[in-house]
């Protein structure tokens, strides 16, 4: 304490810029929920504003994507082997995976892409990755509804299992959120990651059984079967398929996936929250 200034403690002053304890921090994040949700909503609006078809693109994009993959893998590469209802199998895979890949990509840049905001306003930085993942989630929900309409149009029957999509999507959201916390912080420390992560995302896309059936493909390699058993994205995709299509034995409900996913989602969210919070003071720094 240099002699020429007053003693801060004597006047009830606190040090500025310190990281609050975890619970207080999370309360601060909760107070910002209006900001988080509005930022997500307005960003979707801004993204689609310049397009003639506007919000329609939220559902048009995954449809086009499914069409391309259907053409390439279904017709040209014939990976349909052993998969009944290949089109539906593929569409569910593509639609559900899209949330992961978009929130993984944008989530990792949640801080680095918003440096100006981080450096000019003080709010819990966790608001930014939450807002990004929420934005992608808001784009996922209409595509899932579209998916259900599509299934009905193809003659599939709605079942009570469809309601289980709600807890499944909540787990999926928690999973992607936890992951975004981790990658958002890592990208701040090591910006080069933003070049590497797209490859990780693509690797997962090709190994999670989106356009081929893992059970058929890996039938004679037990090690790979074991890997996909615990690979959370495969579990999310399989459960979504099983819940939406209960007519076929290949889509039997494999209930063992639920506890695995609960562990992944809650675990990742807790680890991610603590990991992100621990570096709170670091995010605004210019160096």
């Amino acid at each position: 304490m240099s002699s020429e200034v007053d003693d801060p403690q004597a006047y009830g002053l606190h040090r500025v810029g310190g990281r609050p304890p975890l619970l207080k921090y999370l309360r601060g994040v909760a107070q910002r929920r209006d900001f988080i949700v509005s930022l997500a909503k307005f960003r979707i609006e801004a993204e689609n504003q310049r397009h003639r078809l506007g919000m329609l693109w939220i559902v048009l994009k995954p449809i086009l994507e499914a069409a391309v993959f259907g053409l390439v893998f279904g017709t040209l590469m014939r990976s349909t082997r052993g998969v009944p209802d290949f089109i539906v199998f593929l569409i569910i895979g593509v639609f559900v995976f899209e949330f992961f890949s978009s929130s993984f990509g944008a989530g990792s840049k949640a801080i680095t892409n918003n440096q100006a905001l981080v450096q000019s306003l003080s709010f819990p930085r966790m608001s930014l990755p939450i807002s990004v993942v929420t934005q992608k989630f808001m784009q996922l929900v209409p595509t899932i509804v579209l998916l259900m309409v599509f299934l009905l149009a193809l003659g599939h029957k709605a079942s009570l299992n469809w309601f289980l999509m709600v807890p499944l999507l909540i787990l999926y959201y928690m999973f992607c959120l936890g992951l975004a916390f981790i990658t958002a912080r890592l990208t701040v420390h090591l910006p080069d990651l933003s070049n590497l992560l797209p490859f990780a995302s693509r690797f997962l896309f090709y190994t999670s059984g989106i356009f081929f059936s893992v059970d058929v493909r890996f039938a004679d390699t037990p090690l790979l079967l074991k890997y996909v058993e615990y690979q959370p994205l495969y579990a999310f995709l399989s459960l979504a398929r099983e819940l939406l299509l209960d007519s076929d034995p290949l889509y039997d409900v494999r209930t063992q996936f639920w506890p695995i996913l609960v562990c992944w989602s809650i675990g990742l969210l807790i680890v991610g929250t603590i990991f992100f919070w621990a570096a709170e003071e670091r995010y605004g720094r210019v160096d």
Partner: peptide
Amino acid sequence: RAITGLTPSSSGAVYAV
């Protein structure tokens, strides 16, 4: 920026009510 806590100090500190 240091007074608002956006830029961390390398030594010394800022206190505020």
